[in-house]
Design a protein around this nucleic acid. Structure first.
Length: 492
DNA sequence: GGCGTTGTGAAGGTACCAAG
DNA sequence: CTTGGTACCTTCACAACGCC
């Protein structure tokens, strides 16, 4: 009887793409036993593959896969493919294809080379003619549905894309399912003047090249209009809209009344881009800018609209942005400035003002400096704060729980340990390294080179500072594995 | 083997923001 | 006002494939 750990090792090696002989030589398990271990674990192997491919949303397909696996395995007679290590990868590929899951040979190269996968695929589909009879249109529709779900697209998108699918699926059916799905979604976005999801995002999700939907759409001919004669698709969006103008179902969405939905028109040099933005989105954008103090860049990420559109909406809705402190980083209204001055006059600390107005400390300080010029020295910003904010801005820690004050306390503790009259007694020299270790201790993800870039120091400075400061960090670095840290340095 | 079709990856082009 | 960085759209050269 084999131990559980041995079984686990067999499975692990299998999932790393090792063949029977390699597994045998590593574990001393007989070939027959390897076969029976794998036979009992097909479901687990499938789940593992989903994890490796980072598509865990398809866990629910485990049972159908086991069923498909057995069905196909029962038909295969070629001895090479009677071995699970050769059979599993192409089998998985075919199953994914049939279920509309986006996959390429390259994704499975952790198991087999592309060439091996291709020949395996050919052998397997010979005994599985159903593959060629698969309902391509149904799979395409399934892909579009998954796109809508993944990118959280609205009802309008759903209706327009479904209508386009019915209109065009016969004209596009020579291409692969993913290409058709991408082409339909791209066209939907062009008709609605939307840019989310972008072509790049879409194609990345579908694992196809960005040029595919273009090539497909360029070959379209509708009502004697040749898409190939249109030039760029985005720039001829109005002509494309004209083409579908006669379709009643599409028309109600293409020409939505401006009263119900704000329709922002952005003029660029050569073309006019009509962009559909819902009321909710406009309100959200304004709220993000004024209440949450997001930068334009952050807003573009949150509402998935182009910067030019965000900017147009904001300058339209916030006509008071004339405040000289309303920089592109953080929005500051005139009222904010007045309140800020008032609070300061009431002897409130910078820290409290910062919290109350939800503004970065450096900004509060710079406004005060500007407003109370003669007292500017009094409000000088701590260099630590400037460096901290600079690094955080570039590193962009996402969900990590970090706090400037915590980091500053840590910085002060380290500062106390630094010998007098050495260069790290200079706060701007010391700060980057304390911030580095602080962020590492909070599991913030970033590469060392990114950090070096963010801190604006040279590699040499980083290495020297790292070695000098690491021993002074005490408790906080105990959580960080020393080996990992040093391996990071080697990567530079 | 030649030919057309389908598909890839990368470079070119454009527009913008942020900083100097 | 210029410049560097970034993100996106579009095109291009070429590869892989299937058909004859």
């Amino acid at each position: 009887m084999l131990s559980q750990s041995k079984k686990d090792t067999v499975l692990r090696l299998f999932n790393q793409g090792k063949n029977y002989w390699q597994i045998k030589s590593r574990t001393n398990v007989e070939l027959d036993s390897i076969g029976s271990i794998l036979e009992q674990s097909i479901g687990a192997i499938f789940i593992k593959a989903l994890n490796i491919l980072k598509i865990s949303e398809f866990y629910y397909l485990e049972k159908p896969f086991v069923q498909f696996f057995n069905e196909l395995y029962g038909r295969i007679t070629v001895s090479t493919y009677r071995k699970y290590c050769n059979f599993f990868p192409p089998c998985l590929y075919i199953f994914f294809k049939l279920n509309g899951i986006n996959i390429t040979f390259s994704d499975l190269t952790y198991l087999k080379t592309k060439k091996e996968l291709r020949s395996g695929f050919k052998i397997l589909v010979q005994v599985y003619p159903e593959y060629f009879k698969r309902d391509k249109q149904q799979i395409t529709l399934l892909k579009i549905t998954r796109i809508i779900k993944t990118f959280q697209l609205d009802q309008v998108f759903t209706k327009v894309s479904n209508r386009l699918f019915t209109l065009l699926c016969n004209k596009l059916n020579t291409a692969r399912e993913s290409t058709v799905a991408a082409a339909i979604c791209l066209l939907t976005n062009i008709l609605l003047g939307k840019r989310h999801p972008s072509l790049t995002e879409l194609c990345k999700y579908l694992r196809i090249s960005t040029s595919m939907p273009y090539i497909r759409l360029k070959k379209l001919k509708i009502n004697n209009i040749d898409f190939n004669s249109l030039g760029g698709l985005q720039s001829s969006s109005s002509q494309i809209r004209e083409i579908f103008h006669k379709d009643k179902i599409l028309n109600q969405f293409i020409n939505m009344s401006p009263e119900t939905i704000p329709n922002y028109v952005i003029d660029s040099k050569n073309s006019t881009i009509y962009t559909y933005v819902s009321k909710e989105d406009v309100n959200k954008i304004v709220k993000l800018r004024t209440k949450d103090r997001c930068s334009i860049k952050e807003i573009t990420q949150k509402v998935k609209l182009r910067r030019i559109i965000i900017s147009t909406i904001l300058s339209d809705k916030l006509k008071d942005t004339g405040s000289k402190y309303s920089t592109t980083h953080t929005y500051v209204s005139k009222e904010d400035v007045e309140e800020l001055i008032q609070l300061r006059k009431e002897n409130m600390s910078l820290h409290t003002i910062q919290e109350k107005l939800n503004l970065p400390k450096s900004r509060v300080s710079s406004i005060l400096r500007g407003e109370l010029e003669n007292k500017s020295k009094q409000y000088k910003v701590n260099p630590f704060s400037i460096i901290y904010n600079k690094i955080i801005l570039k590193i962009q820690p996402r969900r990590a729980v970090i706090n400037e004050d915590d980091c500053y306390t840590f910085y002060q503790n380290v500062y106390k340990k630094v010998k007098k009259f050495t260069k790290y007694r200079n706060s701007s020299k010391l700060a980057p390294f304390t911030i580095f270790f602080y962020l590492k201790s909070r599991n913030v993800l970033f590469t060392t080179s990114d950090f070096i870039y963010a801190a604006g120091i040279t590699q040499e400075e980083f290495l020297k500072g790292f070695k000098a400061i690491y021993p002074l960090c005490g408790k906080i670095t105990q959580d960080i594995n020393k080996a990992i840290i040093y391996s990071l340095i080697d990567l530079i």
